[in-house]
């Protein structure tokens, strides 16, 4: 038992060091690693909802809420500070999550998924149609912000952003893992296995799901701010349903039983996309599709499940 948990600690440490060091050796990787980590943070939220057996096909709305916080700030208030973006973006996504959540937690399964999708498409069309406010389909530029009041050159900024993102990802993973082990996190899993019994314990399943939903919306907002800042733009595509689908895809790819799955899935997804789109300009989705089919058929618990299975096999031999 101790051997296994220390092995996990070492693996985590190795991954964190790799995420921090590789971009120094290969500077062109810095933005890619930020995208991997930022999307992983969003996917943590998807994993929370999957504990309750619920799939949201609209979580891109919270991602967009975070991204457009940075966009609006840049357009209407001038260059802001990344820390302020993160705080305001998270608060904004959290409030949106609470409002939407009050509706969607009344539903389960396909109805839950589709209602989320509907809300996100409303946001998408607002962002697209309210041209004078949002620049429509062109999106809003996100000028390079200061960080804690300090301005950085583009070269230095990408590293500042990288290490800040890495720190947030580590903290978010720790917090989500703790949450999933808490009474509330366990009640979230109980919604999946027996909601009737949960109600007969005097617990409101809707309230528990709402807590999970709001946390997952907040994570979506954080990820949205980071991606918009890394790509220096927020567009309506951030709220589009394919973006929501991408987050669910990454969650399944990585494995939903563990917070680490979010980052494993996100790394594979972004790397496949990065290299496949360089090699096969228009058919990289095909490669991702094949990867997903292979995962579902051969590793239903995702990449993390595959890794755990290998470790277990090695421990036995």
């Amino acid at each position: 038992m101790a051997g296994r948990s220390s092995a996990l600690t070492w693996t985590l440490a190795a991954v964190v060091v790799a995420a921090g060091v590789i971009p120094i050796l290969i500077p062109s990787m810095a933005t890619l690693v930020v995208l991997i980590l930022a999307k992983g943070i969003v996917v943590l939220g998807i994993i929370i909802l999957l504990q309750a057996g619920q799939v949201s096909f609209g979580h891109a709305m919270f991602f967009a809420a975070g991204a457009y916080t940075a966009g609006f700030w840049g357009k209407y208030l001038g260059v802001g500070d990344l820390v302020v973006y993160l705080v305001v973006g998270t608060v904004f996504a959290t409030i949106l999550g609470l409002l939407v959540g009050l509706f969607v937690v009344r539903y389960r399964e396909i109805f839950f998924g589709m209602l989320n999708l509907a809300f996100s498409m409303v946001l998408w069309s607002l962002l697209e149609k309210m041209f004078h406010l949002t620049n429509g389909a062109d999106g809003m530029r996100v000028p390079r912000p200061t960080v804690f009041g300090m301005a950085f050159s583009p070269e230095n900024f990408q590293y500042v952003l990288l290490y800040l993102t890495l720190t947030i990802a580590i903290v978010a993973t720790f917090v989500v893992q703790r949450f999933l082990e808490s009474p509330t996190g366990n009640m979230l899993r109980a919604i999946k296995s027996n909601e009737t019994r949960l109600e007969y314990l005097g617990v409101s399943a809707r309230r528990i799901l709402l807590i999970g939903y709001v946390i997952s919306a907040a994570l979506g907002g954080i990820g949205g701010v980071l991606v918009a800042v890394a790509q220096q733009i927020a567009t309506p595509e951030f709220a589009y349903w394919t973006k929501s689908g991408e987050f669910v895809f990454i969650a399944i790819l990585g494995g939903v039983g563990n917070a680490m799955g979010a980052f494993a899935g996100s790394a594979v997804f972004e790397l496949v996309r990065f290299y496949a789109s360089a090699q096969l300009a228009n058919s990289w989705q095909l490669i991702l599709g094949v990867v997903l089919i292979a995962i579902i058929l051969f590793a239903p618990n995702g990449l993390i499940g595959l890794w755990k299975r290998q470790r277990a096999a090695r421990d036995e031999s």
């Binding site: 917090v175 808490s182 009474p183 509330t184 996190g185 617990v203 807590i211």
Partner: peptide
Amino acid sequence: AGHSGRTTLMRSLH
């Protein structure tokens, strides 16, 4: 936890 209403977020169920 349901009975006591102890739905703390950061403490392990165990």
